[in-house]
Amino acid sequence: MQSNQNQLQHTEEIRVRFNETDPLGIVWHGHYITYFEDGREAFGRQHGLTYLDIQKAGFVTPIVKSTCEHFLPLKYGETFRIKTTFINSRSAKLIYQYHLYNGDNKLVCSGETIQVFLDSDNNLCLYNPEFFQAWKNKMELE
């Protein structure tokens, strides 16, 4: 679903697994970053920009910055939605914002990740790789 000229979004539903919780049944804070990854992967499948697509083009995209703000806890057995939004940038990077909502549609957590492109020699790309620019053009993000 395209929300405007500079953003694409995808929403995925996830169930909290037992191994993601502490002895009180509350999700351990470190798992929220994993939920962000789940959101990125679902976004990539929906919009044609998976990690395998990036790897096939000869690049990797390490995370260089991540932020996460917690507002409410998630508990074992709950189902929640993660809304992942791609933030368009002229820079050679992937910027994603995340919003997690519980079953009552209350904001549980929000965050952002920034990834950069490294070529097969682990050199930082200062310009959009050709495959990524082609994807942005296809998505009408320019």
Rank of each mutant, 00 (worst) to 15 (best):
V64P: 11
K56G: 07
S89V: 07
P62L: 08
D53K: 10
A42R: 12
C68L: 09
Y35Q: 09
A92G: 06
K83A: 01
R45I: 05
G44F: 03
L72T: 02
G103A: 13
K83G: 00
S91E: 14
K56M: 12
Q46N: 13
K75C: 09
T50F: 06
H47M: 03
R90G: 13
H47F: 04
R40D: 07
K56L: 14
L49Q: 01
Y101K: 10
D53H: 13
Q97I: 00
G44W: 03
S66D: 01
T84M: 02
L49N: 01
F36V: 12
G44H: 03
G44Y: 03
C68N: 09
N102M: 09
K83R: 08
G44L: 04
K93Y: 12
D38G: 10
T67E: 10
R90P: 11
V60Y: 04
I87E: 08
E78S: 00
L94Q: 13
F71G: 03
I95H: 12
T79F: 10
T84C: 01
G58F: 11
Q55N: 14
N88Q: 07
L100T: 06
F80E: 02
Y96W: 14
N105M: 09
T84H: 02
F59A: 06
T61H: 07
L100I: 14
F71V: 03
R90Y: 08
I87C: 08
L72H: 07
Y101R: 09
K56N: 15
F86W: 07
F71Y: 13
H99K: 09
E69L: 12
F86T: 00
K106L: 13
D38S: 15
E78A: 01
Y96K: 10
I87W: 00
I54W: 05
I54Q: 07
K65I: 05
K83D: 00
T85E: 01
K106T: 07
G103R: 08
K93D: 15
T34C: 11
S66A: 12
